[in-house]
Design a protein around this nucleic acid. Sequence first.
DNA 1: ATTGAAATTGATAAACTGTCTCAAAATTAT
DNA 2: ATAATTTTGAGACAGTTTATCAATTTCAAT
Lengths: 144, 144
Amino acid sequence: MATKHVKEMEALKEHLGKHQLKLTRQRELILSAFLRQEHITAEAMYHQLAKSDPHLGLATIYRTLNLFCDAGLAQARHFGSQTKYDNVSHKGHHDHLICTGCEKIVEFENEEIERLQEEVATRHGFTIKTHRLELYGLCTRCRD
Amino acid sequence: MATKHVKEMEALKEHLGKHQLKLTRQRELILSAFLRQEHITAEAMYHQLAKSDPHLGLATIYRTLNLFCDAGLAQARHFGSQTKYDNVSHKGHHDHLICTGCEKIVEFENEEIERLQEEVATRHGFTIKTHRLELYGLCTRCRD
DNA sequence: ATTGAAATTGATAAACTGTCTCAAAATTAT
DNA sequence: ATAATTTTGAGACAGTTTATCAATTTCAAT
C-alpha cells in the first residue's frame, strides 16, 4: 500500500519541503485515496474517506486537494456547479461526448485535436495548463 | 430596435410555443439585452438592466438565461465561481482561450479541430448538435 | 373586451459550494 | 523533551444559484 504511488509521494514531499509545509497523516491519507481516482469532487472524497476516517473534515479535503493542485499532482476543473479534481497522472480522457437525450457520457481522447489545441494556444501566446472539450448531441439510440 | 435580432426572437417564440411557455415583457427585454453581449454573467446583466428597469428581479434573470440555454440561444459556462452565459448567435466563435491569471478571454476558430470532432462523434455513433472547447492557461503577460 | 386557467414575476428565503476562523493538536528542528 | 510553527476539525461565513409563494400577467376562449 505504501509502496504504490511512490513517485507522487516524493513529488508531494518535495513541494512541502520547498514551502515549509508539513507532512501529515491526513495529507498522506488523502493523497493515497486521490491517486486511486481519475477525477473526483471534494464532497465525494469526503464521503468516501468518512468510512475509514469519520473525523476527517471537509475543509481539510478542500485544503489538501488545492495543495495537490499547487504541487502539480491535481488539476481543478469546473464541471456543472462543482469542482472536479483531476488526477494528473491519468493523462488524457478529459474529453466528453454527451448525449442530450439520455445524458450518457462517453470519454474519448484524440491526439490530433490535442496537438491542434497546442498550436492555437501558441499562436496566441498562451501556455495551456488544461482544457475542456465537450461535444453535445444524440447517440445512436436516442436519434431513433 | 425591434427589427434587430428577429431570427433569435423567432427561435425563442418557437421554443415557448413548443413548451407552453409565455412571451413576457421581461423575456423580450432580457433577450434584447443578452443578444448585444458576447458573453455575460447573470449578475452583470442584473446591474446593467437595473438602470432601465429597476424592478427586474435577479431570479428572473437567472430563470430567463437558463431558458435561453434550453432554447439553444445561450450556452452556460462555469468559470471560477460564476456562470457565464455565451451568446450562441456569435457563431464560429464558440471556442475560447482563457487566461487563468487575468481572466482574459480570446475567441478562436479552427476548422480542422471541428472536422476532427465530427469524426470522433461519428465513430461513436453520435450526431453533434453543439460543442464547447475551452483552453485554460496563462497569457504572455501573466506568464512573467 | 372580459374572463379564467395557467404561467410568470419579484422579493426573499433557502440551498449549495467553497473558504475563513480559531482553539486544540500534530509536526519538525533544536 | 521543548518550543516554534503548521495543521486540523468544527462550524461560521460568503458568494452564487435555485426554490417558494402570493400577486400579477399572459393568452386562448368566449
